[in-house]
Design a protein around this nucleic acid. Structure first.
Lengths: 147, 147
DNA sequence: AAATAATACATTGACATTAAACCATATCAC
DNA sequence: GTGATATGGTTTAATGTCAATGTATTATTT
């Protein structure tokens, strides 16, 4: 091992950390997903949650917040609309925009689910101490930013 | 804010860290993905990379390593097979197993791509110092484990 | 040896996901 | 105002993804 170049070690450490990051994210996410009612996907949950806490949003904003493509959001909102959880409305001021808002049914639904997801996330993440959580936030923030 | 219960603060910190973890993972992954040749997906890359570094594997092993379902791997291997990068072979000792191996074309292909992905991952992750990388590994390992 | 259970993969159906092409609306330049 | 350009959303084609179910093969039980 003494013959390894500096660059090789850097590469190995970077790859290693990258893989661990991906695995941690995927495995926590899948365990959190497990608590969602059958038929409600993570992205659908993300849309409902954003509408609950921010209020009505247009699809472009939803796509940006959820890191998804516009075309994807069209379909996800379609499915939420079919299920009766959200309603679409053309913005009369600028008819290109479609404003998505929670229906009463959707509001009640996400209002019941959200606390359970929070409890689950809390259980998953509190394997770390609050100092460790803070460190994780800092590191994630640093690598998450485009550079 | 002084009226917040201890539990509420824990929940907020946990949620906050969870979201940052997901975002960091997704955004790094999408930037790494960007370096893959058009048409090669992340999971396809994962299969080729595993075959390159471990050697021939059966589909069940691939599914486990890549944290994907068996049915999914069937399709991913289908597409890699169509593209001529891998070949399937029934294990003669136990005909339930399908051994997947790289073709010459696939071997050459992944051999060219892998170093470029490594370079990209290195560039992304080396925003962190080696100490920070080490910390990130430790934290991810801790939350990734099922508990 | 026949019935049963377990294992590995394939298939199906529903939804997610993206990129690219497309349509409708709005804005800008002239 | 008219044409060019930009913007927001939709559609399409290809792939991914899982859960559930089906099929083939092997192992176990009796």
């Amino acid at each position: 091992m003494g013959t390894r170049h500096r660059g090789e070690i850097e590469e190995i450490n970077a790859l290693n950390a990258f893989i661990k990051l991906q695995r941690a994210s995927e495995s926590v996410s899948s365990r959190v997903h497990a608590v969602l009612p059958a038929g409600l996907t993570i992205t659908q949950f993300g849309v409902l949650e954003a509408l609950l806490h921010i209020g009505p949003l247009c699809q472009g904003e939803l796509a940006e917040k959820l890191l998804r493509s516009g075309g994807n959001l069209t379909l996800v909102v379609d499915n939420l609309e079919k299920a009766g959880y959200v309603a679409r409305e053309r913005d009369p001021a600028d008819r290109r925009f479609v404003v998505v808002k929670l229906t009463d049914k959707g509001s009640k639904f996400i209002g019941e689910i959200f606390p359970r997801v929070v409890a689950n996330v809390t259980r998953e993440m509190n394997v770390l101490s609050s100092t460790e959580l803070f460190d994780l936030c800092r590191l994630c923030k640093k690598i998450g930013v485009r550079h």
